[in-house]
Write a protein that binds this DNA or RNA. Structure first.
Lengths: 209, 209
DNA sequence: TAGATTGTTAATCGATTAACAATC
DNA sequence: TAGATTGTTAATCGATTAACAATC
C-alpha cells in the first residue's frame, strides 16, 4: 500500500475525485457506486474502480463505496491530514491573489509569509499574510518549517531563487513563472503555466472553425 | 494538414516548444537539431520529431530545424497570429491579477472588459481593463466579439454564468472556479484548478518521506 | 561525396476499457 | 437466496521510443 508505484495519471485524477466526494458529502449522500460516480464525473466506472484499487479495497461488493470513508482515505493519500506551510515569493498580482485566497486554508495549505524586493512593502500585510523583504528570506526559511514555496516572480529570477530556496530546505516549488526551473530530479516542482493553458484554448478555438 | 487528428498529448506540448523556440531566438540561435532540443527540454528526440511531423515537415535532413521558421509555424498552429478578445468575469483577486498581467498581450490575448456584481466598481479600471457591472454583460457579449471568457468567480455561480455566456456567443471558457461546468460537448473549456495542483504537490511531498 | 539529421515505420510500453468471477 | 457491485484479469487502445532508410 505504501510502496506500490502509482502512475502519474492516477495521481492527477485523485484531487478531482476528492472534490466530487466532498460535494456528495455536502449533499448528504452516504454511498455511491462506481457506476453512478462515473455518470456524474463523465469517466468510466472501470477507471474509477481501477484507480481506487491502486490503494487497496475501499468499496464493498453489492454496496458500492461509503462516501465519507472514501473522502477521508483519499484525503490521507493526498497528504491533506496535516498542515502545509507555504511561502510566496513575489508580491505581484498573482502572489497577492494567492495570499488573499483563503480557500486553500480549508485543505491545510497555510500561507505564512510573502517576500518581495520592494522594501516599501516590508511590514505590510496581504490578507493575513505578512510581507517581508527578500533579504530576510534565507533566515526565515532556515528557521521555520517551509514545505512549499510559490514562485510568482519574473521568469529571469525564478531558476536562481528556486535553487536557493531548495538549498535552504524548501521541499517543493509551486512555479508560476513561465520558465522551467531545471532543479535536481529529487526536487518537487509543480508548474502552473497560465499562458500555456490559454494557448491550448486558442488552438482549439482555431480547430473548431 | 488541416484535418488530420492531432492527439491531446501533442497539443499539450506545443506551447512548451513554442516557449523554448522563443528563448532560442532571443539567444540568436538560428538552427537546432531534435537531439539538441531534446537535451535542453529533457524529452526524447524521437518525440520531438514525431510531434512536429504531425503538422508536416518542418525540418531538413542533415540540417535540423530553422528556429525562427519553426517558431512561426507553431505560432500559427496555436492560433497566435490573430488577436483573441478575452473578458474576465469576477473582479476578485484572481480576476484582477489576470487583468493586470500584461504578458498575455504579447501572445495576442487582450483583456477587453472585466465584469463584477459590485456596483461600486463600475466605471473603474484594473490595469487597462475597464470594469462593468454584470448586468451589462449580456449586451456587451452580444455587441462585441468575445472569444474567451475567464471565469474567476465563486464556484456556485460559475456553471450558470458559463452557460449564459455560451448562449450569448462566447466560444471558450477559461475556468478558474473549482467546479466542472458541464457545458455541451462542443463548448471549449480549459480548467485552471489551482487547488488540485497544490494537492498533487502535497501527495508527492508525502511520498518523498 | 560523406556526414548529419530528418521523416517515418515498427516495436515497446503504459493506460484505459471490457468482462466476469468473487462476494457482500 | 438473489441482486448488486466490487476487485481483478484480460483485451484493447493510444502514446512513446527505437531504429533506420531517405535525403539534404
Amino acid at each position: 500500500m505504501s510502496d506500490k508505484f502509482i502512475s502519474r495519471a492516477v495521481i492527477k485524477r485523485l484531487p478531482r475525485y476528492y472534490r466530487y466526494l466532498g460535494e456528495l458529502m455536502e449533499n448528504n449522500i452516504e454511498r455511491i457506486s462506481s457506476k453512478e460516480l462515473s455518470e456524474r464525473m463523465k469517466v468510466t466506472a472501470s477507471q474509477i474502480r481501477q484507480d481506487f484499487n491502486n490503494f487497496g479495497g475501499f468499496g464493498q461488493q453489492g454496496y458500492g463505496y461509503n462516501v465519507e470513508y472514501l473522502y477521508t482515505e483519499i484525503g490521507k493519500i493526498l497528504g491533506l491530514t496535516k498542515t502545509h506551510n507555504v511561502i510566496i515569493v513575489g508580491a505581484g498580482n498573482v502572489g497577492r491573489a494567492l495570499a488573499n485566497y483563503a480557500d486553500f486554508g480549508k485543505r491545510g495549505f497555510v500561507f505564512t509569509a510573502l517576500f518581495d524586493i520592494d522594501i516599501s512593502l516590508k511590514g505590510t500585510k496581504v490578507g493575513d499574510c505578512p510581507v517581508f523583504h527578500v533579504d530576510d528570506m534565507e533566515s526565515y526559511v532556515k528557521e521555520n518549517d517551509v514545505e512549499i514555496a510559490a514562485l510568482t516572480l519574473p521568469k529571469n529570477n525564478a531558476p536562481e531563487i528556486a535553487a536557493k530556496l531548495v538549498s535552504w530546505g524548501v521541499d517543493a516549488i509551486w512555479n508560476f513563472a513561465p520558465v522551467d526551473l531545471n532543479l535536481p530530479d529529487d526536487v518537487l516542482v509543480e508548474n502552473v503555466h497560465l499562458a500555456e493553458s490559454l494557448m491550448r484554448l486558442s488552438y482549439r478555438i482555431k480547430e473548431k472553425d
